[in-house]
Amino acid sequence: MFDIAIVGAGTAGLSAAIYGVRAGKSVIVFEALTYGGQIINTPEVENYPGIRQISGFDFATGLYEQATGLGAEVVYERVIRIDDQGDTKLVVTEDGQYEAKSVILATGAKNRPLGVEREEELIGAGVSYCATCDGAFFRGKDVAVVGGGNTALEDAAYLSAYCRTVYLIHRRDQFRGEEKSVERLRKKENVKFVLESRVTALNGEGKLESITIEHGKNGETTQLAVEGLFVAIGQMPDNEAFANLVDVDHSGYIKAMESCETNVPGIFTAGDCRTKKVRQLATAAADGAIAALAACEYID
């Protein structure tokens, strides 16, 4: 029996592991893919207090080595279910079962897909969710960015330096992102605004060649020849497996206050997977600390 079982080895989960083992508890961390979470996609982190600049990979690796070096155990198995048996929580993975006195859900968030047919098939063949990761492959080409928030605006600005044309597609006529960024984009000759429109189809043999766009006002459709489509319509949680275990909000985020407690005694939550206003690296780490100490208090 472990004292604390943590689901997710991102910044929140590994921070919780550090606080858990340092409080003298036995800690097991479950991870489906690789440690680090979303931050590994960020080339330069420049807003984490106390660290002027670090790559997301180095940050994640430092965190991982710190947690495992202190004695946390990281297991690469996907958690499919957790049974709340009162004082014992049974963590069921694809490969086995583990008992723990408490659980911290730190499952993070993932990019929200457009929900258009063939989207998944074309990932890596034109469809991307990370302009800074994949932008360089589209040098001199025509691409589109979908979204209306700051990420979409930043992506469009980033891509406009490489690409021949950047179409910025948004379903409304106003952006949620900062007006200053919109102004800056309007001045760029190779950025074209396609507003009140949505992407309805992805076309191409083996790779993306064009997209079909439906214009909201008149319902007309047009084809836009682009080789790249950067989807920046926000994040979504990955809590389907736990929706029956703890209360989640309408978007699927686990309901919790600053204490990181869920509605179930002994089950805590930390990081981007929970209801909160600010989802940053520093707040994920902070949540990890709070959740771990709350779990320790619960056990004792």
């Binding site: 690469y76 990932i123 890596g124 063949a125 990761c133 790779k207 080789e227």
Partner: peptide
């Protein structure tokens, strides 16, 4: 080879592509 995102891993047999995966995979 039409690589537009990395990591991309491509399997070749007799010089022909027989499989491809994009992103971190176990």
């Amino acid at each position: 080879y039409g690589v537009m995102s990395i990591p991309t891993v491509i399997a070749f047999k007799n010089g022909e592509e027989v499989g491809r995966s994009v992103g971190f995979k176990p």
